[in-house]
């Protein structure tokens, strides 16, 4: 494997990724949620830039939209993009978490959430995972009909239905379903032997740092949009101490 472009701390993931999201056009509150999702991905030992940069590009290039409407239809809550574009996962993710939060004390386990035509389905799993709620299954079918699913639980535990971390497996917009599952589901036969992530991954990454590869320049480029060019005047008077101090 190539050497990483940079090794970041979690704090830097939050700093750079949330501001990159602002640079891509996300309001700050949603950008913070994006930062948390990025940390969740990084804590699994995965490259957060690889998994998130396409969602930023989709928004920046106006292929995805932050405009959506949410309706309740019996046990199903449906989130649909208001226009022709795909629904940005950067709005859909926090919307799912808000729904989970609002339903937190609801005993009706049959309720579920459907987000239609989401640009990057895995980002919904990242949003739900970073929310650190009880156990949830996030699933979608790709264009060939293959089922993908992520099972999230509290304390940073999660599993994927696929073994490889290859992001190309998860490309393409899809309808995503999020449903509550029993805690015991984590150890059910269906999920036995699946790729598993735990708090230990996070502890390991705390000791090694977050390795970020080829997609880092994309994140940094969006991040840079939040910086203000320096002028002679701002250099002189925009910050504190003088430019030469010997005492």
């Amino acid at each position: 494997m190539n050497s990483p472009e940079i090794v970041l701390s979690f704090n830097e993931v939050m700093f750079y990724f949330s501001r990159a999201a602002v640079g891509a056009g996300l309001p700050y509150g949603l950008a913070e949620e994006f930062g948390r999702s990025s940390i969740w991905i990084a804590a699994g030992g995965l490259d957060p830039a690889e998994f998130t940069s396409n969602a930023l590009k989709s928004l920046d290039e106006a292929q995805s939209s932050l405009s959506a409407s949410q309706t309740e239809n019996g046990a199903e809550t449906v989130l649909t993009c208001s226009g022709e574009k795909t629904l940005s996962s950067l709005l859909a993710g926090p919307s799912v978490c808000d729904w989970i939060s609002a339903k937190d004390n609801d005993s009706n386990e049959n309720q579920h959430f459907s987000a239609k035509n989401v640009d990057h389905p895995f980002m919904l799993a990242a949003a739900v995972g970073s929310f650190n709620s009880r156990s949830w299954e996030i699933s979608w079918h790709d264009s060939r009909g293959t089922l993908y699913a992520v099972l999230t639980a509290e304390h940073g535990n999660w599993k994927t239905s696929w073994d490889s971390a290859d992001i190309s497996l998860m490309s393409g917009a899809a309808d995503v379903t999020i449903r509550s599952v029993e805690r015991s589901f984590f150890n059910a036969d269906k999920w036995n032997g699946k790729k598993s992530y735990s708090e230990k991954n996070r502890e390991r990454v705390l000791e090694t740092g977050v390795q970020v590869y080829e997609a880092w320049p994309i994140i940094h480029s969006f991040f840079s949009r939040c910086l203000v060019p320096s002028t002679d005047e701002s250099r002189k008077s925009g910050a504190g101490a003088g430019l030469v101090e010997t005492d």
């Binding site: 309001p27 700050y28 509150g29 949410q70 709005l91």
Partner: peptide
Amino acid sequence: GAFVQKYPEFRH
């Protein structure tokens, strides 16, 4: 929840 979905600029 409905408010911030429509006006995400107030979420933070």
